[in-house]
Design a protein around this nucleic acid. Structure first.
Lengths: 124, 124
DNA sequence: GTGCTTGCAAAGATTTTGCACGGCC
DNA sequence: GGCCGTGCAAAATCTTTGCAAGCAC
């Protein structure tokens, strides 16, 4: 079950690793096709799953669609309810610091995701 | 465009308003069918959209599937990555208080959603 | 060579929509 | 009566999967 180093996986990661725009699988597919014209969408999905399993990619579920972020971008997102765009945000101080569960819950928290909803500047 | 008071809408709201289990559209559909056997799934979806537009229902996008919560339950959720169950959680102190955006961002935040991921007690 | 990976296409799962009919106001 | 809401079924979207061939190790 070792992960092989394939051109497809490499190009997908290259496209994604400096990406700030929270692309969908389809958008990634279009980008990767410029390098590998006959890659299939299924392959893109399978490699994105691997990257996520490896902890390199974070999957945002926004409005019934998956968006993919390199994991370094581990911050909250602002989703405009009018135009649907996704923005990166930084919060005041350490509000975003690991939210602490009450110690007696029995849950093991490995990650969290905070999403803000509202209207962006251009849509106001 | 006024919202009419129909039996379908009422039953759906009745099913949902005290619900703590974050049901999916399909689960709501099954429940409502006990009252209105020939209701259609499309109608359930349309009424859930109305309730959401009215601010009565919050939609959680979890793992590519919508889950519906009465809006009173406005708290974080814990999603077990092993069994997929969704739990309500309460955080220590005010961590969950409205996250404050830096004042200069131009975003108008109307709501937010915090999700914690990890392993629940039974799956540990 | 072995077995993971790919491309292709079909299947899946979930959600949305068109249409004619029916019921609320 | 006018118009919104409904049931039904088909369509749409997004994602996953089976399979035979191909490539990495």
């Amino acid at each position: 079950m070792s992960t092989r180093r394939t051109r497809q996986l490499e190009v997908i990661w290259d496209v994604l690793k400096d990406e700030m725009s929270h692309p969908t699988a389809d958008q990634i597919y279009e980008r990767v096709r410029r390098e590998i014209p006959n890659i299939s969408l299924g392959t893109v999905y399978r490699n994105l799953q691997k990257l996520a399993a490896d902890g390199k990619v974070q999957i945002l579920n926004i409005d019934r669609t998956q968006h993919f972020d390199p994991i370094s971008n581990k911050h909250p997102h602002f989703i405009c309810e009018s135009c649907g765009k996704v923005y990166d945000v930084t919060l005041d101080r350490r509000e975003e610091a690991e939210p602490l569960l009450s110690p007696d819950t029995g849950f093991t928290v490995t990650s969290h995701q905070l999403s803000l909803y509202g209207t962006c500047e251009t849509c106001s």
